[in-house]
Amino acid sequence: MAANTDAAAEQTQASTGITPATLSRTLEQKLSASHVDISDLSGGCGQMFEAIIVSPQFASKTTLARHRLVNGVLKEEIAAIHAWTPKCFTPEEWERKKGGG
Rank of each mutant, 00 (worst) to 15 (best):
R96W: 03
V54M: 07
G43H: 03
S32I: 06
A14E: 13
P20A: 02
T19I: 09
F58A: 04
A33E: 08
M48R: 05
A8L: 13
T62R: 13
F58M: 08
A79K: 09
S32H: 13
W94N: 07
L69F: 04
G99E: 07
I81D: 10
S39D: 04
E28L: 06
G17F: 11
E95Q: 09
A9G: 13
K87N: 13
A2H: 10
G43F: 01
E76Y: 01
E50Y: 05
D40H: 00
M1K: 06
A51D: 07
T12V: 14
S34K: 11
L27C: 08
Q13E: 07
P20G: 03
T12I: 12
G99H: 08
S39N: 03
E28G: 00
V54F: 10
T26A: 14
L41R: 15
A7Q: 14
L74P: 02
H82T: 04
A14G: 03
E10A: 14
K30G: 02
A80L: 15
G100N: 06
Q57R: 13
F49V: 06
H82Q: 03
K30W: 12
I52C: 11
D6E: 13
D6N: 07
A33F: 12
C88K: 00
R66D: 11
A7M: 11
G46Y: 02
E50R: 06
W94R: 00
S42K: 06
A7E: 14
P86M: 13
D6T: 15
Q47R: 13
W94D: 04
L23D: 06
E95R: 08
K98C: 15
E10H: 02
A59I: 05
K98Q: 15
I78K: 03
W94P: 01
K98M: 13
G46P: 00
G99S: 10
S24Y: 07
K75C: 02
A59S: 12
D40C: 13
L64D: 05
V70T: 02
H67N: 10
A3F: 11
T90E: 06
S32F: 09
N71C: 11
E28R: 12
R66W: 14
H35I: 03
E93Y: 08
I78D: 13
A65L: 11
H35D: 05
R25V: 00
A83D: 03
L69R: 01
F58L: 08
N71D: 14
T16Q: 06
K87R: 15
E10M: 09
E95T: 10
V73I: 15
T26H: 07
S42C: 13
A79I: 03
V36P: 05
V54L: 04
I38C: 04
S15M: 12
T12C: 03
V54N: 04
G17C: 09
E50H: 07
P91L: 06
F89E: 00
M48E: 09
R96K: 14
L31R: 04
S42W: 04
F89T: 01
L74M: 12
L27I: 11
G72M: 04
S39Q: 06
K61L: 15
D40T: 05
A14T: 08
A3Y: 05
P56V: 00
P86D: 10
G44S: 15
I53P: 02
L41V: 14
R96T: 07
G44V: 10
G43C: 05
I78N: 08
K30P: 07
N71P: 10
Q47L: 11
